[in-house]
Amino acid sequence: MRLMTCTILLASVLPLSASAGIFDDDEARKAILDLRAKVDAVSTKLDNKLDTKADKSSALELANQIEQLRGEIAKLRGQIEVLTNDLANTQRRQQDFYVDLDNRVRKLEPKKMTIDGKEATVDIGEQRAYDAALSLFKAADYKNATAAFTAFNVNYPQSAYAGSAQYWLGNSWYAQRDCKNTISSLQQLVKNYPDHPKAPDAMLNIASCQLELKDKPGSKKTLETVIAQYPETDAAQAAKSRLAATK
């Protein structure tokens, strides 16, 4: 009877060791150790019963107690299965969290892109600042656009968008009919970024402002410079037409 009972107990406990192997979480491992301790206590209790009942109790009573202990072991195994499932769900949620976090971090990383025909690296804050300023200009909020483009060039002086920001800053002043600031801003664009795609158009706006300020000689000279420096552009053709109209 003792050999049979120990065999049953051993068969019930062995799967617990196999299940415990998948627990990497500290709390889950501690819970399993607690359950093992309970199983050991049941085993000790069973041994004690076997020692005493062998001398003075009936086999039927002993069998009932063995069944009761086997039920306790089955209950403990069920608790381990629940813990195993909970741990698997937790690990899956953690994996999903790290994947989502990685995707968020990637969105914050600098991006390589082509700006005004040149390859450049732009970080998320820089991109948002430029887009916000340009949105203000497109919404005809020229006063705030002026402030936004000015701030952009202060905060991101080495940005690949710096030339475009300077151009739109000049246009923001021009939309407010502030020719002095228009000329100053666009002249800075032409000086610092002579190869910028918007440089020829900037010079046309400079010429327009000079004419509005009654500086006809300055306006004529600017138009001639457009033709000389950017002969193959639409701006050069427009400059020729304006010169012809002033004769």
Rank of each mutant, 00 (worst) to 15 (best):
V154A: 13
Q166L: 10
K107Y: 02
D234V: 06
D96S: 12
R77S: 14
D215E: 10
L83C: 05
A199F: 01
P217I: 04
Q94S: 09
I73M: 15
V226E: 03
N89F: 01
D25N: 15
M4L: 11
I115H: 12
Q79N: 06
A228Y: 01
S185Y: 03
V39T: 13
E119T: 03
R93P: 00
T44R: 13
T44K: 13
T182W: 03
A37Y: 02
D123Q: 07
S219G: 14
G125V: 01
L169D: 03
I8V: 06
M4P: 01
D24H: 10
R104M: 12
A37W: 00
Q237E: 13
R92I: 06
L223N: 10
Q166I: 00
N205D: 13
Y161E: 07
S19R: 09
N192M: 05
A147C: 00
D178N: 15
L134Q: 12
R29Q: 12
N48Q: 14
T146L: 04
R242G: 01
A88Y: 00
L14M: 10
A228C: 00
E81W: 00
S159W: 02
T5E: 09
Y161M: 07
R93S: 12
P200D: 02
C179G: 10
G71F: 07
L50S: 10
I22R: 11
D55I: 09
Q91D: 15
D178K: 08
K45F: 03
N192C: 01
V13H: 07
I22M: 06
D96E: 15
Q176W: 00
Q176L: 12
K56Y: 08
D195Y: 02
I66N: 12
D26T: 10
L243A: 02
D234C: 01
N64R: 14
L14K: 07
A28Q: 09
G71C: 01
S185V: 03
P217R: 02
V39M: 14
K216R: 11
D96R: 15
